[in-house]
Design a protein around this nucleic acid. Sequence first.
DNA 1: AGACTTTTAAATGTCAGACAAATAAAAATT
DNA 2: AATTTTTATTTGTCTGACATTTAAAAGTCT
Lengths: 247, 247
Amino acid sequence: MSKIMKIDPQKPVDLSAQIAQAIRDAIISGQLIVDERLPSEAELADQFQVSRPTVREALKRLAAQSLIRTQRGATGGAFVNRLSFEDAYSQQITTSTLLLSMNAVDFDTACEARYALERACAPLSAQRRTADQLATMRAEIFRQEQPGLTDVAFCASDVAFHRALVDGAGNPVLSYQLAGAVEAMQPLMNMITFTARSREEIISLHSRIVDALQEREPDIVDETLVKLENYTRKLAQDVADRRKKAV
Amino acid sequence: MSKIMKIDPQKPVDLSAQIAQAIRDAIISGQLIVDERLPSEAELADQFQVSRPTVREALKRLAAQSLIRTQRGATGGAFVNRLSFEDAYSQQITTSTLLLSMNAVDFDTACEARYALERACAPLSAQRRTADQLATMRAEIFRQEQPGLTDVAFCASDVAFHRALVDGAGNPVLSYQLAGAVEAMQPLMNMITFTARSREEIISLHSRIVDALQEREPDIVDETLVKLENYTRKLAQDVADRRKKAV
DNA sequence: AGACTTTTAAATGTCAGACAAATAAAAATT
DNA sequence: AATTTTTATTTGTCTGACATTTAAAAGTCT
């Protein structure tokens, strides 16, 4: 690692935050490459002229973002981590979920965003979906038809269905970007209790989507997604109205 | 804060990671609400039966994800942070940038994802764009027309143009989701050197997009975005070919 | 010589205790 | 009553130590 990384002890910012930023910059700019080992904590403490606990706090910050991983033992240390799509997924889901819940994003806004993004995948999905993905979607529909299914399980299956649709586009970047949008919606979706009647309608639309994907009919997929969006928003509206009346 | 948070000292996972996860779970589940103060580091150390440095490492992990903020002084402490759209933006951009650079995502995949998402915004943008956003876009086009503009500055202006387009949809969730996709592309875009000739073509397509947005013609916006995508991919292809020939 | 066991060294993980610095409330002073 | 000083609390940082994990080195036996 180049030793040009510098921090300014005069700044009114935590030293550990400055050190983390310096290392983060080195990773982003490519000065530190994947799987490269950072100097040991003691060496970093020397280089930055701080104590080991301060260095450790900096490293934990980076670990929280999956930028490094640490290993104990003789040949251990901190290594630049290859950020996997999986790591990125889970971070995005956490961030999106908190963002929606903490900023009082209303259901319509979140719903609109989700379906707009999902519709972006539809044409690609119609073109590239695999037999395996179609099977996954049909399996989820079958699950959704079971009468004893709890609301929570129904929502989870709904998420799985839509993820399969997105994955059908065969573009990992799209899948990653949409994971957050789809999964973060689940808590909001859970606020809508799916009655037997509304489940029926949703399942029928899901079936239509799978059929259209199988027949490679992007327009029908799109059209059905619009219907699904409208229906979902109407359900949310009904729940909101009923709640207002109850007060 | 409820005191039911527990960790297992036997687990082969860092105590600080376990503590961070316990607090993170409490925030996500709503047991800890925005602006609520966590117990002091000393109290947390007591509760979790660990030392203060260990607690601090846990808190730094949470701070790295913008889940908490800390304040020194008598009434200071760690507070649950309201995750702002801005915080979420920058995290998403960091994650997306690293994801693309570390996983050798090819230009076509990233480009396809970006334009698929952007086209999802087009109809909403045509409907809701403000005069202010149109002005921003025209200003960026004007900048792009300046002959002395560096490649880096041209790319930055390109990003600003497309962000304005996305923001035109008037949906903060969409804007947040797409910020990563658009900005993370910039390093890849920078690999394409924009010649005067290719700039001219791009600017003309940009102009057409603004005009169509002003006239509220979603179909023309969509169609032009497709052209822009194809042209961008063709440029990248040319650069790749030329590089191959040079070897 | 080769296979196995033991030792050693290096690194992270954790702890204890201390002091510095910031900050707001409480106390003292004018 | 307003201002200044003191005090208590809390985070930020440092020092030094020990525990634990791990792989390599050294030693031992067949």
